[in-house]
Design a protein around this nucleic acid. Structure first.
Lengths: 336, 336
DNA sequence: GTGAAAGCGCTAACAG
DNA sequence: CTGTTAGCGCTTTCAC
C-alpha cells in the first residue's frame, strides 16, 4: 500500500478537491508565500502529512523557470581521474545542496572539450554551475560568461567578478617553502604539474614567494614545470638530483607518488638522502612510509562553501565573491 | 548578441509562427516521431539550426512524465570517500549518459541514512538509479523496490530480478588465492573490510574457494574479517603474523595501505619477509615501492555498462540482468 | 483571506 | 501529412 501511495502521484488539485478549497490556497500553504489563514494552512499541511504528498518539482520548475539543480563540473583528464580532491568536494556540495533542497547534476570536461557542459546549459537542466578545476584560459568559463549562467569556481582568479572559493595556495606553498628553508634545507626543488591549471600557477608563485621571504635566490635549474606525466616527472627529478637538490616539493599527490617512484629507482632514501613534501594529504601520503609532509585542507568544507555560494547567488542573496578555506601544514618524517 | 540569442529562450511556438506551421509539426520534426513531410522537416530543422534553438527539457519532462535524469548514489562513508573506484565509475556513467541525452544527478548515502536518495525519488528528479555500493541488507534497495523505481546495482546479488553490473569478485579472488598458493606460499592470510559490503563477502568467498580448488585447508586464525578501521587492521595483521602467515591478501587498497603501515611498524620487509596482494590497482598501489600485486578492472567500463543498462531498462529495451566486466591479475614484486 | 483563470513549453490523441 | 485541442502540475496575476 505504501507502494501504491507513492506511485499514486497525488497532486495539488487532489488535495484542493479533498479539502474543498482551491489549488491556489493549497499552493500558498505549501510555499508559505502570500496571505493565508492560519487554520487553513494547518489543515492543508496536516492533510499533506497524512497522505504523503510530495510536490512535482518538474511542474514547479516549468512554472518558475527554475530547475533547483546545480551542475558540478569535474575534470575528466586521465591523470586527475583518481584524485580524491574532486570526490571530497562533490561530497561537500551534495551535502549542502540537499539541505537547501537543491540537487547536483554532474558533468565532466577536459581542457578542450566542454560538450557535456554545453548540453546541460542548453537544455536548461541547472540554475547554476560549480567549476572545480579552473584553467588559465578556460573555455568553460568563457562559455558560462557568454551564456550569462551563474557560476562559482573552486580556485582563484584575478577577475574579482567571478565568485571564488579556495584555500590560499599561494600563501600555503610560500609557508611550506619558507619553513623548509628555515629548517636547514639549502637547496629546495619544485616539481610542478600542468601550469594551465591555475592551482599549479598559484603553488609555483608561492614557491617563489617563499624564497623571496627568506631572501634566497631560486636556482632555475631547481624548478621543473609542466610535468604532466610520469616520464616528465622522472626527467624533472633526475635534473633536480643532478643539481644537488636536498629537498623536493611536489605540487600534488600524483606527482609526489611519481617522484617517489623515480627516487626509488635512483636508490635515494627518504628522508636520509633526500627530503620530500607535497600538497593535499590524501590516503596515498597518509599511509606512505615514511609519512609525507603535506598541506592539508578540509576539502569537503570547500565543497560545502561552494555549494552554498552558488545557491545563495542564484537566489539573489548577498555573498562574498572570494572565500578562503583554512589549510594546515603537517610536518612529517619525510622532511625530518 | 550570442548572449541574447541564448537567453532569448526561443520556443517551439516561435518557430511555428515564423514558419507558418503548427507547433505539432515542429515538435514532430524535432522528435522524429509521427509522419511528417521530408521537406517540412528539413525546413524546420534548417531554421532551428540557424536560430540556435534548444528545446526546454523541463517542459518535455512535464509533458512526458520523464526527467531524462538518472541518479548515481555514492557512498559517503568516511573510509570510502577517497576510494577512486566510485569516481572512475561516475566518469563512465557520465560519458555514456551524455551520449544518450541523459544527465546524472548524484546523491550520497551511508549504511543507515538514505535521506538524500529519498528526496530525489520523492521529488521525481530522476527516471532511474544506479547504486554503486550494495550492502547485504540494503535499505536503499528496499526503498527503491518499495517505490517501484527502476535501478541497477554495481555489484552482485543473489536476487536475479535485480539488474547487476560487476566484475566477478568471487572468481577473481579465487584465482588470485590459488595462484599465490601454487607459487609456494604455504600460509596465506586475509584481511577483509566491512562484510556488510557485498563486495567483501564476494572476495571472502573467493578466498575460501581458492583454497578449496587447491585442496587446501583454511586456517581460521588466518582470516580477519570486518577490519573497518586502521586499528582493527593492525590487530588483524598482528594476529596473522603471530600465526606465521607468509602472504597477506587485502580486500581493498585502503586496507592494503593500512596493512603496509602495520607491517612497517613491525619492521617486516615486503616481499622478503612477507608478501602482499590487493584489489583494484589504484594510484596508491601503482606507485608503491615495491609495486603491489593486484587485481585490475576497467572501472570506467563498469560505469559505462551500468549507465547503458539503466537507460535501456527505463526505455523498455531488452537487457541482460547480469553483466560482467573482465578483470586482470597483475603480479608484481610484492609477491615475488 | 481565497478563488478563477491564464500560462510555463512541450507532447499526444484525435480529426481532417 | 498536418492542425486542433487538451493537458502535464504548479505558480501567479488579478479580482472578489
Amino acid at each position: 500500500m505504501n507502494k501504491e501511495d507513492e506511485l499514486k502521484n497525488i497532486t495539488i488539485s487532489d488535495i484542493a478537491q479533498e479539502l474543498g478549497i482551491s489549488k491556489t490556497t493549497v499552493s500558498r500553504a505549501i510555499s508559505g508565500k502570500g496571505r493565508i489563514g492560519e487554520d487553513t494552512r494547518n489543515r492543508v499541511l496536516g492533510y499533506i502529512e497524512k497522505c504523503d504528498y510530495s510536490p512535482n518539482f518538474i511542474a514547479k520548475s516549468l512554472a518558475q523557470s527554475k530547475t533547483f539543480n546545480i551542475a558540478v563540473i569535474l575534470p575528466a583528464d586521465s591523470n586527475l581521474i583518481e584524485t580524491p580532491f574532486f570526490q571530497s568536494c562533490l561530497m561537500g556540495i551534495c551535502e549542502i545542496t540537499a539541505s537547501m533542497d537543491y540537487d547536483v547534476v554532474v558533468a565532466t570536461t577536459t581542457e578542450d572539450d566542454i560538450t557535456q557542459l554545453k548540453r546541460i546549459i542548453k537544455n536548461h537542466k541547472v540554475d547554476g554551475v560549480v567549476l572545480t578545476r579552473p584553467l588559465m584560459n578556460d573555455i568553460a568559463i568563457n562559455y558560462l560568461k557568454s551564456t550569462g549562467t551563474p557560476f562559482v569556481i573552486i580556485g582563484s582568479m584575478e577577475n574579482p567578478e567571478i565568485i571564488q572559493i579556495d584555500s590560499n595556495h599561494v600563501t600555503a606553498c610560500s609557508d611550506l617553502t619558507a619553513l623548509l628553508l628555515m629548517s636547514g634545507n639549502s637547496s629546495i626543488g619544485l616539481v610542478a604539474g600542468n601550469l594551465n591549471h591555475i592551482v599549479n600557477q598559484n603553488r609555483y608563485e608561492g614557491f617563489l614567494d617563499g624564497f623571496k621571504k627568506m631572501n634566497r635566490q631560486v636556482n632555475p635549474g631547481m624548478v621543473c614545470l609542466n610535468c604532466t606525466n610520469a616520464i616528465l616527472v622522472r626527467q624533472g627529478v633526475t635534473q633536480l638530483i643532478k643539481n644537488n637538490v636536498d629537498c623536493i616539493i611536489c605540487t600534488d599527490d600524483l606527482i609526489c607518488s611519481q617522484t617517489i617512484t623515480a627516487l626509488d629507482e635512483m636508490k635515494l632514501r627518504i628522508p636520509e638522502e633526500i627530503k620530500i613534501a607535497s600538497f593535499y594529504n590524501s590516503m596515498f601520503l597518509e599511509h606512505h612510509h615514511p609519512p609525507i609532509t603535506a598541506l592539508n585542507v578540509n576539502v569537503k568544507e570547500i565543497g560545502i562553501k561552494a555549494g552554498k555560494q552558488i545557491i545563495d547567488f542564484i537566489n539573489g542573496n548577498e555573498i562574498q565573491t572570494k572565500a578562503y578555506v583554512n589549510y594546515e601544514l603537517i610536518m612529517k618524517e619525510s622532511t625530518k
